[in-house]
Amino acid sequence: MALPIMGEMSEGQRGSLIYIMETIIKLTEVNKIYRTEEIETQALENVNIDVQKGEFLSIMGPSGCGKSTLLNIMGLLDEPTSGTVELCGTKIDPTLSDNRLAEFRNKTLGFVFQSFHLISSLNVLDNVQLPLLYRGVGYNERMKRAKEVIERVGLSHRMKHTPVQLSGGQCQRVAIARAIIGNPEIILADEPTGNLDSKMGADILGLLKQLNEEDGRTIVMVTHNEQQAQQTKRIIKFLDGRQIM
């Protein structure tokens, strides 16, 4: 559906809209096939998804249904076999250079993974500032912003700790701080509560909701937890690589 722009709206229309919807992620006819010498597996089949700016979308489905593959393709961590991906109005051309893709990931996307993927040799402060490091932000600015986001996720007292010295919930908070430090438009969370107990899981989900509601960040979350998915604004369900709802 084509969205009306403000200038074309009637007085009544303007009054009835709270905000204008804008597609920030657009997947068109996306297929992903994994091939080995013996077998061919279709992980995604003709997937078409539009995610609007400011949405909190959850993708649900059983294990192996292709939801993580979808998230990886949205996050430019993997390439579709066919189909197109648009992020923030930019069509991701498969011929884009490694450097250009790295820059895009750095500025536009933030990731939260089920197993945290923190770097064990770095402390909390150094882990969190990674995206800014690769953006070429100066040391003082990096430190200032890292401290701000660490404080926001409630870990000011753990800045010098390394991941092995933290609990699972704390690790995921660090991962969220790392995801938001670069102010990305989109946060992609792959089973962010999958390795946590229910209390910690609820805590992390609360943090993600806060980021969505207060900062207006677009969040796409993969989960198989129905209860958590219900707390997001929209749910897409997957089965055997196909979108079923």
Binding site: A102, I119, Y134, G182
Partner: peptide, 14 residues
């Protein structure tokens, strides 16, 4: 795995 994470957050190969 570490290198993958760094690339995910914008590290260039070089």
């Amino acid at each position: 795995s570490e290198m993958g994470v760094r690339k995910a957050f914008g590290a260039k190969r070089n």
